[in-house]
C-alpha cells in the first residue's frame, strides 16, 4: 500500500529548546500528486519539510520519502529529491550559469552544458547567464532557484514558498509546469500562502501552531468543517461591520471592498441574524459556497482560541 506513497511520515515532532514547533504531524503524499501545505507564519511548515529531506532530525516520529527512511537514508533522499529553500540559498557571487553548473556537477549529470542551456532558455535568462546571481531581482532569483532545484529531474519536489514574490504570469507558467510534471508521475509538496495556488493542488494540508488541523482534497476539507457562508453586498458595509460581527451565529467576517464573507457553523441562526442586519442597513444577502480561505481563517481562529 505504501508503494504508491512518495511521502509517508508519521507523528513527526520537533522541539527547538523548550518550544514544541511540530506536533505529531502525519502526512501522506501519493505519487503524481500535488500537495499544498498551508498555514500561518511560524506554524512549522519549513521545519516539517526540512525533516522530510534530512536537514533536521525529528525528535520523534518516523517515515519515508520515496521509500527511503528519513532517519537513516537521508543520503539517498537527497539524491532523488529536489528541495527549494524558502530563503534564496544559491551563491550570489557566482553567475547564473555557474550556479546551475554547480548543481549539475553535484548530481553527476551527463550532457551538462546542453541541459543548462535549455534551462536558461526556458527561464528566459540566456542573455543574462553570465551575470552575477546577486544582481538578479527577488522574483528572478526565485525562478532561478526553482529551475535549479528541478535540474536533476527529481522524483519528488519539496518546494518551500516557491512563488513568493513572483509575478502572476510567471506563477501561472510555474503551475502549468507543476501539473505537467505531476502527470509524468512526479510528486510535489508545495508550501504557499496563496489561496489560488491552494485551489490548484490535488490535496491540501493546513497546519497551525505545529498541529495539522485539516487535510485532504479542497472540497473534502471544506465539507469537513461544516461551515456555512453568506455574502453581504451594499454601500454601508463598513458601518454594519460591528453590528454583524457581534450578531448571534456569526463566527467570522472577511471584508472584500464592496462585499463581505460571513461564516458560521449554525446555518439557520446565521441566516436569521444576517437578514435582520441586512434590512436594517439596506444590504443584500445571498448564500455562497464556503471557500478554502474561509476555512483556513476559521481553523486559525479555532487554533488561536485553544
Amino acid at each position: 500500500m505504501s508503494d504508491d506513497l512518495a511521502i509517508n511520515v508519521i507523528n513527526l515532532n520537533k522541539f527547538f529548546g523548550p518550544k514544541h514547533v511540530v506536533k505529531d504531524v502525519s502526512l501522506q503524499v501519493k505519487k503524481g500528486e500535488i500537495y499544498g501545505f498551508l498555514g500561518p507564519n511560524g506554524s512549522g511548515k519549513t521545519t516539517t519539510i526540512r525533516m522530510m529531506c534530512g536537514l533536521l532530525t525529528p525528535d520523534s516520529g518516523s517515515g519515508t520519502c520515496l521509500g527511503y527512511d528519513i532517519l537513516k537514508e537521508s543520503a539517498e533522499i537527497k539524491r532523488h529529491v529536489g528541495y527549494m529553500t524558502q530563503k534564496f540559498s544559491y551563491w550570489d557571487d557566482l553567475t547564473i550559469r555557474e550556479n546551475l553548473d554547480f548543481v549539475a556537477r553535484m548530481y553527476s549529470m551527463l550532457g551538462r552544458s546542453q541541459i543548462i542551456n535549455e534551462t536558461l532558455e526556458t527561464l528566459g535568462l540566456s542573455d543574462r547567464a553570465n551575470q552575477l546571481t546577486g544582481s538578479l531581482s527577488g522574483g528572478w532569483k526565485q525562478r532561478l532557484a526553482l529551475a535549479a532545484s528541478m535540474l536533476h529531474k527529481p522524483d519528488l519536489l519539496l518546494l518551500d514558498e516557491p512563488t513568493a514574490g513572483v509575478d502572476p504570469s510567471a506563477r501561472r507558467d510555474f503551475w502549468e509546469e507543476l501539473h505537467r510534471l505531476a502527470a509524468k508521475g512526479i510528486s510535489v509538496l508545495v508550501s504557499t500562502h496563496y489561496m489560488d495556488e491552494a485551489e490548484r493542488c490535488h490535496k491540501v494540508a493546513y497546519i497551525a501552531y505545529g498541529k495539522l488541523l485539516a487535510q485532504g482534497a479542497a472540497d473534502e476539507v471544506i465539507a469537513s468543517q461544516g461551515l456555512s457562508t453568506f455574502i453581504l453586498k451594499g454601500t454601508n458595509l463598513s458601518k454594519a461591520m460591528e453590528r454583524i460581527e457581534s450578531a448571534p451565529g456569526v463566527q467570522q467576517t472577511v471584508l472584500f471592498g464592496t462585499m463581505m464573507h460571513v461564516s458560521g457553523l449554525d446555518k439557520d441562526l446565521l441566516r436569521q441574524s444576517l437578514q435582520a442586519a441586512a434590512s436594517e442597513y439596506g444590504l443584500e444577502v445571498e448564500e455562497a459556497d464556503t471557500g478554502l480561505e474561509d476555512i483556513f481563517i476559521h481553523l486559525m481562529k479555532q487554533a488561536d482560541s485553544n
Binding site: L55, K78, T85, S89, Y90, M106, Y107
Partner: peptide, 10 residues
C-alpha cells in the same frame, strides 16, 4: 544561508 542548499545536496 547557502549551507541549507549544500546540505540538501548529496
Amino acid at each position: 544561508g547557502t549551507m541549507e542548499n549544500l546540505l540538501a545536496m548529496p
